[in-house]
Amino acid sequence: MKPPAFKYYAPSSVEEALALLAEHGYDAKILAGGQSLIPTMNFRLAQPGVLVDLNRVSELAFIRPADDGGLLIGAMTRHVQVETSDLVAQRLPLLHETMPFIAHPQIRNRGTYGGSISHADPAAELPAITVTHRGKIHLRSTRGSRWVDADDFFVGLFTTALEPDEMVVEIALPPLPPRTGWAFDEFSRRHGDFALVGVAAAVTLDPAGAVEDARLVFMGVGDRPMKGDTAVALLRGQVPSADLIEEAATRAAQEDIDPFGDVHASAAFRRHLAAVLAKRVLTRAVERANR
């Protein structure tokens, strides 16, 4: 299980990295934390001709407050930095609560935010959380710079809106609005495994206790983070009773997701889990919103 040969570059600035991507385009892979890419290379399932290693681009590792009360997170910010950041804990509690679900301590010491969303594993936590937060992703290439809504960034299985010469430089995560409750839960075979199904929820209540807005995002049940819009439509404008939440969760699990089956869980079981977890996270989010 030795990786195939490749040409290695370790740029020290974003400009340098972008120039390398412009030059090597389709042959190149970006090496961020490497926690998904390197095992894939060790199995020789990925054989990139060129690796552009961003680990020396120190300008990409940061967590900064944004004017809207949310945060800007640099693409090379490691999971452990997000997990232990006071800023994240204060401003983005949903993200803070989700971080320990990601793999194991050693992986979190290397893995990066930008790497995770660029890899776009539909069973991974950060793509789902980024979508739940209505995050925006800042992409750059030598051709220019653009911001892409998280909703538009994840386009398919391990596929994003990134062009071959583009890379993620930062992620903007707006705060959840006032009177918003949140929750995240997932079910995995072992602690730290990719979840069979995970669900994130954010529910905003109006002063009367009815749902003003909501987000429900599933992972592991489609080719990308899947939004439970049917549930949201059912909840909006209603005071969320236990029955309504159950109905919303069940409907979303029927209509909003497209689970696949594998050795660990059939599509039917994933659908079942999606309904159970959606009910649980919506219930908890509403409880928190009411607090």
């Binding site: 299980m1 370790a10 490497g34 390197i38 095992p39 050693q106």
Partner: peptide, 28 residues
């Protein structure tokens, strides 16, 4: 050599990492 078992864990700048999921050149 696929980052699950943890037998190859070393401290990299003081933090535990899986040495099978890094290239030596990155340790420069």
């Amino acid at each position: 050599e696929h980052g699950v078992c943890g037998a190859c864990t070393v401290l990299f700048d003081g933090q535990p990492v899986r040495s099978c999921l890094m290239f030596a050149v990155q340790a420069d």
